[in-house]
Structure formats: structure tokens, C-alpha cells
Amino acid sequence: MSAGYNFGFLDEHAKKEVRRAILKAISIPGYQVPYSSREMPMGRGFGTGGLQITLSLIGANDTLKVIDQGSDDSVNAVNLRQFIEMTCPGIDTTTRLSEATLIQSRHRIPETPLKPEQVLVLQVPYPDPLVVVEPSEDKRKIMHGEADYARLLVKLYEDIVKFDEITISHRYPTRINDHYVIDPSPIPRWDVPKLDNSPALILFGAGREKKIYAVPPHTKGEPLAFEDVPFRVEDFRDAQGKRRACARCGATDTFLDEFMNEDGSKRYQCSDSDYCDETLEADMMTEATTHA
């Protein structure tokens, strides 16, 4: 009963529906295209939306990279990668960003800029940034169509009045091509600037909420902000104002994970594990050459 699944698990009609939705998503940057979203054999919320996009795109010529929290070895990334390997015989998988043609990711955009021939698929739990100000989808669709984000801006402004700071930490509302405001998925603010004028196509899949949207390459992506309270990425400086470095590779220009040591002290390490590995290898190469 377990054998005999179609290449890519989904049947070809399901893939065609996703593909048609992707074309409309690209043509209307930032607009959430509804689609029927089939049940996948992993939980809603575990990346079923991203997975349906990946399975509708992937072919035998592809090399796939799957990451979660920036890591290829996170349990969820391993699980998704194994499932895709099992249902798509003939494809290659990799942990190296430079080798990948398709990248499926949860919560991070890789540190190294993407290449034009790559496609990034982001998994989305909540696709609609307006949900915090308007519970009815019916009304939100009209607000999006009219690019009416006044209530969202008021919400941001209330934050500033209360805390003197915009308190949105991740899923930062970002305006695409001067019209639609998207939820860029739970990427940290650190990754939001990568949406602007991206060399690669970025696709967003929300399986449970049955939506697909896109940020095409070379498209304006602007985080909502005010003139006097600018958008700010995460601050990784210590108390003395010095930028913290990755304890493993020494990088000072990456998003860092924070670890608690047994003695209560903290250490920091690159969230993007492939970037960390490559930096480490490059350092070792340089060292080897110097010693030689």
C-alpha cells in the first residue's frame, strides 16, 4: 500500500494548479494567490505550502537544499529532505548553497546572495500581515486590493508611542513593488533587506492557509517604517558596542544563534550552517597556504 507514489508525490493535476498559481503570483508581486493546497504527509505548519511549491517545480536536473533555522541538519529540514529524496528519485540534494538550484527554507534567507538561476522557496505559517488589524479575510482582500494599509501603519505607530521602538521582531511587514504589503514569513529582520532587488525569484507557500505569493527578482521590497523611526535589523553588539563574532568561524557579518553555556555565560554562532562551514574552510585553506 505504500509504494507507487507519483514522482513528486502530488499527482500531475495538483502540480499544474500550483504552477498556474505561481505564474499569477509572479505577475502580481506580493498578492496572495489562493490555491486548493493538498494534504501532505506532514503536519500543516511543518512546511506543506513550501513543499507543494518545491514538488511542483522539481525535476531530475535539480539540486535541492533544504534548511530550517538556517541549518541543513535541523530535524524538520532532514525530514523534508528525506521525503523529497524518497518521492523524487534522480534529484540531487546538497548542503552547499552554491550547488543548489532550488532552496526550500524555513525562517531564514541564506547569508550569501542568491544567484539568478536559483529559486528560493520560503515556508509560511501566516501569509497575511493584515490579520492583526482585520480578522475577516473578505475585508482584508479589499484592503490589499486598494493598497489600504492605514490601519497597519497605525498599529506600528501605537507601538512607537508605547515603547519608543517598533516591536515587530520577525515577519516584518514589507511592501512589494509599491503596492501589496506581505508577511515575508518568519524570517528575522536581518533577512528582510535581502528581499529588495533580489537577484533570484523568491516564492512563498502557505499550505494551511492555502496561499502562494512571490517576490520576483529585481523588485522593490521595502519594510514599513517611519521617517523618524527607521527599520532596524537585529543588533549583535555587546555591552561595549563591539560586534559579536561567531564562536566557530569568527564571522562578524551574520545572524547569530545565542547559546547558553553550563556556567550561564553565552556564546554565539552563525545561524546559517553552510555559510559557517564555508568560512571555516576558507580560513583553513588560507592558513594552510600561509604555513606552506
Partner: peptide
């Protein structure tokens, strides 16, 4: 064939994206 259509879709998608 499904695999031909998959490759063609990627080309059409790239055309729409660029």
C-alpha cells in the same frame, strides 16, 4: 510527458519572473 512539462514550466516561470 510529466517530465517534459516540468522542464517547460520552469522555463515559462523564468520567462514570467524575467
Amino acid at each position: 510527458q510529466a517530465d517534459t512539462q516540468q522542464r517547460t514550466f520552469r522555463q515559462i516561470m523564468n520567462a514570467f519572473a524575467r
